[in-house]
Design a protein around this nucleic acid. Structure first.
Length: 830
RNA sequence: GCCGGAGUGGUGGAAUUGGUAGACGCGCUGGUUUCAGGGACCAGUAUCCCCCGGGGUGUGCGGGUUCGAGUCCCGCCUCCGGCACCA
């Protein structure tokens, strides 16, 4: 039996596509409508593509090819997110320079990517670790710096005592230890670079409404931004000329405040602590620094705190309140100070229990007989009491009224706070884009002039093993420089940028890789942005996807680009597990795609992954099913071999006549006519919706049916077969591009299949003359009737009641009603 | 604790969105082919009972709405993902 010779065919067409620049995109062509389809670029530090990449990239390519065949100018680029910690860690461990390992990985992965047979335009590849790219990442930084959106401040960071380096939050394990050495991680205050993403909190929140994104992801971003309306209330400190500002969302509980809490890092702690309490407070503050933020924030930790010895005055009733320091209050949220209302806040309640502080109930239920349990806080809205002139108000009214009262007395004002923090972008690491700023003793922080970019990352004389400060600081040639302002001795900033900065704008750079004198060409941006469909994992919901949105909002705000949002539609691919678990080296269940590609071919492997399950859901990898796809390919191949003669024996006019299936098909058998049109409709809808698995099922059905209908070869009209094979070739093109291109040329075409227009279908041709009506008795399937479409309800009812099966099931019960769903079901109720 | 998503044959998964549950594939069973094979083709395959004509039961569990529920409502269970002292 003839097997489909994928080994000969796949490399042949890959070369042909490349030689004929089939995948080259003209970015300046405005004659065709564009579609910009981007899949998150790959992270070469992982060294090799795994099955998940094939799942993702194969599906996205099928979609892109389909869109292209529908007549759009489609741009589907690919690149490398090549800076980052894994390459650096590998380098430290094996003493190989990260530049070398990264370049090697990129080269290897690029070849693997080419095996997928996707229509990437490789002339527009980006690599974030190349000076041609990071020059513009630095340029982007400078734009932010010039407008004050990039700034330095002292901030608590995670510090591993053993590795002697700063760690990202993701690198700290749940128990507060370092993921690499499992030693203790502490909090350390360090001067860091930040981007003012909080300035855009509200815009980022509002922008979500119009995005065609998964609701779950939008919801995650909303929570992450965490807008919350409340009030800043001023508490004067007794015997000090200081005021503590407390943010609360519940000013209606103001009369229930029994003490005040400051975060350990709060600047007033030192000022107001009494001499008597000083030793204890110092010890406590010191103690909190011994924990990482992650550890401190563990919700199940018992609350601790220390009294400062100082008091503050409640502006509502003049009561004096103890001021405490406790690490359950965070310096980084709100004002870093809290008015504690134990009766109506469970956290404060727990704290009071431990330290024997008083509880004052000021909110009750509206039900006069309703009692509130007193063993925990009552956090709901209710009716105010013990609250002076506000007694009897609902919480909603009270919040308004207290706000007005406070602001009229200059003791507070309503504000909006966000959970979102400014984006900490500096890293004390080597393998990243250097921050293009010079520190001059005389002039301060001075931006490197744009025409001096890039600030090259030195590849020699850098000791990148961690020792407690930025590796670049140890490189004399790099760090010592002249101040661009005064020309005096100065030092370069030794930090590098978070790789999320690199990946926050790469989709802009794809459009201008041919330009060395600008980050992006505004005309092209305005023509191609936003990205029409962006595909990537849901794990980026609150990281990359917020950062990229922020950068676009920012560039828009300073007038550099027109578009407001980077990604119009977002799709998350699912995750491929193996044996029910996520693939990982430690579990030893990683599946390497290469042997499967070698044994079954690229198309077969792509098809199998797409067929395995829903693109968005993911699935569990199994070696077993792929054989079914090979059989499917072989069946198609043999079908073409068996009918090869029709391509020469059927003349050109016949071919023209059947170019478009929606045209007159009067001479084609009704069954086939219907089948072809039906398959076009189904496959079209499925590809539009990323439902590759069902699209492939429909094509399998078509092939099965063609085998059945052509069992008797002599009775088949060759034109009919020619039409069927042509239709099949076009429909399978996006899914199995190599095979389809081969078949396309075999049936007599010279140009690429992917320059061919997609097929339209004829609705009328799908309509069936004969339909099967299901007869139910009390909703139970009882019998079937095959009738001509449009048979009247009366006739159907009569026929149904005559059925022996129906009679048997009805027994002697009387007919009550008949429900009729046209052309589908007749339900007899008795 | 809070917010999402999902539970369907031996197995991967379908189901026009309230209308024939199990499409398509894997596996398995039987058969055909001068078939040495992990080849090709045909038929069967949710499950239980059975007088072989049928009958009962079935989409995580328990209720409900409806002529009719995998799909909608209420209450649970399990798994996965995210957030987690955010005042």
């Amino acid at each position: 039996m003839d097997e489909y010779p994928f080994k000969k065919i796949e490399p042949k067409w890959r070369k042909w596509w490349e030689d004929n620049k089939i995948h080259h995109v003209n970015l300046d062509d405005s004659t065709e409508a564009k579609k910009y389809i981007v899949v998150m670029f790959s992270y070469p530090s992982e060294k090799k593509l795994h099955i998940g990449h094939w799942w993702n990239y194969g599906g996205v390519d099928a979609f892109s090819r389909f869109i292209r065949m529908r007549g759009y100018n489609v741009f589907e680029p690919m690149g490398f997110d090549a800076f980052g910690l894994p390459a650096e860690n590998y380098a430290i461990k094996n003493n190989v320079h990260p530049a070398i390992t990264t370049r090697k990985s990129v080269k290897y992965i690029r070849e693997q990517l080419k095996d997928i047979g996707a229509m990437y335009d490789w002339s527009r590849e980006v690599d974030t670790s190349q000076p041609e790219y990071y020059k513009w990442t630095q340029w982007l930084f400078l734009q932010l710096f010039k407008t004050g959106a990039a700034y330095r401040k002292k901030a608590p960071v995670n510090w591993c005592t053993d590795c002697k380096t700063v760690l990202a939050n993701e690198q700290v394990l749940g128990n507060g230890t370092c993921e690499r050495c499992e030693n203790k991680v502490i909090t350390r205050d360090m001067e860091q670079w930040f981007f003012r993403i909080t300035d855009f909190a509200d815009n980022l929140l509002k922008g979500l409404d119009d995005l065609d994104w998964p609701e779950a992801t939008k919801s995650m971003q909303r929570h992450w931004i965490g807008r919350s309306e409340g009030t800043d209330i001023d508490f004067k400190v007794v015997n000090h000329d200081e005021t503590i500002h407390c943010f609360t969302t519940r000013p209606d509980t103001l009369f229930g405040v029994t003490y005040i809490v400051l975060a350990p890092e709060h600047e007033l702690v030192v000022k107001i602590t009494t001499d008597k309490q000083k030793a204890e407070i110092d010890a406590y503050v010191e103690e909190t620094h011994r924990y990482s933020d992650i550890e401190r924030l563990a919700a199940d930790r018992e609350k601790t705190g220390v009294f400062t010895g100082a008091y503050a005055v409640n502006p509502a009733n003049g009561e004096e309140l103890q001021i405490w320091v406790a690490d359950y209050v965070l310096k980084t949220y709100g004002t870093g100070a809290v008015m504690a209302v134990p009766a109506h806040d469970q956290r404060d309640f727990e704290f009071t229990q431990k330290y024997n502080l008083s509880v004052k109930w000021v909110i009750g239920t509206s039900d006069p007989h309703g009692t509130i349990e007193t063993d925990r806080a009552f956090e709901e809205y209710g009716i105010m009491h013990e609250s002076g002139q506000f007694d009897g108000m609902t919480s909603e009214m009270g919040i308004e009224a207290v706000n007005e009262w406070l602001s009229s007395r200059n003791a507070g004002k309503s504000t909006v706070r966000y959970r979102l923090r400014d984006w900490l972008i500096s890293r004390q690491r080597y393998w990243g884009a250097p921050i293009p700023v010079v520190h001059c003793k005389k002039c301060g922080l001075i931006a490197v002039p744009e025409d001096e970019l890039p600030v090259l990352l030195p590849e020699k004389n850098v000791d990148f093993t961690p020792r407690g400060s930025s590796p670049l600081g140890s490189c004399k040639e790099f760090i010592e420089t002249k101040c661009p302002e005064c020309g005096g001795e100065a030092r370069r900033d030794p930090d590098t940028m978070d790789t999320f900065v690199c990946s926050s704008w790469y989709f802009l750079r794809y459009l201008s890789t041919d330009s060395q004198d600008q980050a992006f060409n505004p005309d092209r941006i305005n023509r191609w942005m936003p990205v029409d469909v962006y595909i990537g994992g849901p794990e980026h919901a609150t990281g990359h996807l917020i950062y990229a949105r922020y950068i676009i909002h920012y560039l828009n705000s300073i007038g550099l680009i027109d578009c407001k949002e980077p990604f119009k539609k977002l799709i998350h691919q699912g995750i491929i597990n193996h044996k029910g678990q996520r693939m990982s080296k430690s579990k030893g269940n990683v599946v390497n795609p290469d042997p499967f590609v070698e044994k079954f071919g690229s198309d077969c492997f792509r098809l199998y992954l797409m067929f395995m399950g829903d693109f968005r859901t993911g699935g569990d990898w199994s070696d077993d099913g792929i054989i079914g796809i090979r059989r499917f390919q072989n069946r198609i191949w043999r079908l073409f071999l068996a009918w090869e003669h029709v391509n020469s024996s059927v003349g050109v006019p016949a071919c023209d006549r059947i170019m478009d299936v929606s045209n007159d098909l009067s001479n084609v058998e009704p069954n086939l006519k219907r089948l072809l049109n039906y398959t076009i409709r189904e496959v079209t809808n499925d590809l539009e919706n990323f439902d590759f698995n069902t699209a492939i099922s429909r094509l399998m059905e078509l092939v099965n049916e063609l085998y059945k209908q052509t069992a008797d070869k002599d009775n088949v009209d060759p034109a009919y077969m020619k039409l069927a094979l042509r239709t099949l070739t076009i429909l399978i093109g996006p899914l199995a591009p190599h095979m389809a291109e081969e078949l396309w040329h075999r049936i007599g075409n010279k140009d690429s299949l992917f320059n061919q227009k997609w097929l339209s279908y004829n609705k009328d041709a799908i309509r069936q003359e004969e339909v099967t009506i299901v007869i139910q008795v009390n909703g139970k399937l009882t019998d079937r009737l095959s009738v001509i479409k449009g048979t009247s309800e009366e006739d159907l009812k009569e026929a149904a009641l005559k059925s022996e099966k129906v009679k048997r099931r009805m027994g002697d019960k009387a007919l009550k009603r008949v429900i009729y769903v046209p052309n589908k079901i007749i339900n007899i109720v008795c």
